[in-house]
Amino acid sequence: MKVLSKPVADKSKYMDLLRQMMLIRRFEEKASEMYMRGKIGGFLHLYIGEEAIATGVMSVLGPDDYVVSHYREHGHALARGMDPKVIMAELFGKATGSSGGKGGSMHLFDASRNFMGGYAIVGGQLPIAVGLALAAKYRREDRTVLCFFGDGAVNEGEFHESMNLASVWQLPVIFMLENNLYGMGSYVERTHAGGKDIYHVADAYKIPAAQVDGMDVLAVREATEEALKRVRTGSGPVFIEAMTYRFRGHSMADPVAYRESSELDQWRKEDPIEKFKVVALREEFVTDDELQGIEAGVQATVEAAIRFAEESPEPELDTLHDNVYA
């Protein structure tokens, strides 16, 4: 792993990035607890360990840019500015949730933030990203589409079709690969013929690509900034591979029986939040007191989200039939 890349000059930016990553972490730790208590059903896919990617990306994305994601998207939604209360309520399946309790953890959506949804079939969101970009280009709008996907999606046909279409049509898409090295429980070198450095596949589609340290929020931020600049010239898509690691299982249902705990220990040393704290303290962009203040603030936000979700009503029963058709 590389050391953290060059610091941003502005102190408040540091605080924001740190607060954002800590919020995602605490939110998910609490969600995991709520899942164990039966408050959250279905599948819950935690982003713990990968927070630097969502945080770095969203810190430079414009409000008009579109975001499309997969089923491990709490972090993306939070970093995009969706209200933690509304997200937690959706996880609880409550009427006040972002999708009125119809979607759950895997299907967050917020058109007002151009957060165009979490999709839970691996690879299924990629063609949608192409379409959002096509619409933006057709309307001559200055928008970029940021599409998140994992290393598992790279082996789906939809990934390749989307890369090809975005490139032949020169569409404003940033393909943001979060390579956490495991597609469910299968190691990337056993599932991808090209090995674990996946960004090489972009060459086949003449899409410029870069690999960054996904545990370094500043590196992700910088890479996204560069990609945005390039995409906004109208020269077509860009591919970024962020190398990362999920500290938890594929979902809460996964006992993680497929990797050595020493591997996790090794990656924990790269914890994006802890690493960033060290630098922030060293560079004196944040004091111990401020750090505690952020921690307390984040804690309060998450507690308030839980309370809101707990106290919110279940969906009205006749809404079962609503929204089948527009």
Binding site: M116, P127, I128, V130, G131, L132, E161, N164, L165
Partner: peptide, 17 residues
């Protein structure tokens, strides 16, 4: 291109806008 998942999915995305 002959790429139904790609262009029909793109149509879904475009329709969402």
């Amino acid at each position: 291109p002959i790429s139904e998942a790609g262009f029909i999915g793109a149509a879904v995305g475009a329709a969402a806008t």
